[in-house]
């Protein structure tokens, strides 16, 4: 991995304001200057960089034997290095680190930066989280966040949040692929009617579309010898199409401009990719 790293990134946390946050115990003064950011998880910083579409190197310091860095180009994770590990393996290793110190440097010339990571950042974080849970289950780690979950209700809320994050990722991916052809989208849990994610849409519309499919399902099963299948395609005025997909427990409602994006493109290219991403996140 190359790229000219020429100056420190402007985002610097005021360490004095962070006096209540415990820095890694072994950090020397030099180390503190070298890695001035601390108090947030690696994952949080990664998401901020991705969201802000920064082109930078994020250096990570766990202790003197464990350091590494992530390389971002316009918010896309291109590479990571951690000891002898590179690419996804390095990224996965560092995402799981806690109580780290960080430094961020801008990359001014990206011409020599090779992309070694193709996986979506959210997928990497999910995979890292899954691996961490596995380690926890094996008793190798003791201090992980799930230990704080004391009641079944809390566990459900956490599971709900994880699911919402996955579905948000899917809608973001869809939005990225479809551009301004995507007018609105929402995903609703058909078991409890909860709107899990939405884009340019509101929960009322999602609920309204779910009432529609519930009506169709009920009508079909009670009044005909048939059952409703897994999708509806509704042509709308103003060159729009509404596609409703019922996949497992979720109903996806997608409204798009059918001139800018054909129905065939949505059905054959975009949705399979989005569903594949969702399934990969579930499998880990």
């Amino acid at each position: 991995m190359g790229g000219d790293v020429q100056k420190d990134f402007k985002l610097i946390i005021d360490n004095e304001e962070m006096s209540n946050v415990s820095a890694p115990e072994a950090a020397t003064k030099e180390e503190l200057q070298r890695w001035p950011l601390f108090g947030l998880s690696v994952g949080s910083f990664l998401q901020v960089i991705a969201m802000e579409q920064q082109t930078c190197i994020m250096e990570v310091y766990l202790n003197t034997n464990n350091t590494g860095h992530f390389c971002f180009v316009e918010g896309e994770l291109y590479d990571a290095v951690c000891g002898s590990l590179t690419g996804e393996d390095a990224a996965m290793e560092m995402i799981a680190w806690e109580n780290v110190r960080l430094n961020i440097k801008q990359i001014l010339n990206t011409s020599s930066v090779d992309r070694k990571i193709d996986k979506n950042l959210m997928l990497l974080m999910m995979e890292s989280s899954r691996r961490r849970d596995e380690v926890q289950e094996n008793g190798e780690h003791a201090d992980l966040e799930m230990e704080d979950v004391e009641t079944l209700e809390d566990a459900e809320v956490v599971a709900d949040d994880v699911e919402r994050t996955k579905l948000d990722t899917c809608l973001n991916l869809m939005s990225k692929d479809m551009g301004d052809a995507l007018r609105a989208a929402s995903i609703i849990n058909m078991n409890d009617g909860k709107v899990m994610a939405f884009y340019n849409d509101d929960p009322d519309t999602a609920q309204s579309f779910m009432r529609l499919t519930t009506y169709m399902k009920t009508t079909y099963s009670s009044e005909t010898p048939f059952e409703l299948g897994d999708h509806l395609i509704i042509d709308l005025k103003d060159q729009q199409t509404l596609v409703i997909l019922m996949i497992d427990e979720y109903q996806w409602n997608i409204i798009f401009n059918n001139v800018k994006c054909s129905l065939g493109m949505l059905r054959n290219i975009i949705m399979p990719k989005v569903i594949r991403t969702f399934n990969e996140m579930n499998v880990g």
Partner: peptide, 13 residues
């Protein structure tokens, strides 16, 4: 939105 020219219903099977 307003309904356009058609809608298509997938039936199981």
């Amino acid at each position: 939105a307003e309904l356009g020219q058609y809608y298509y219903v997938d039936v199981a099977g």
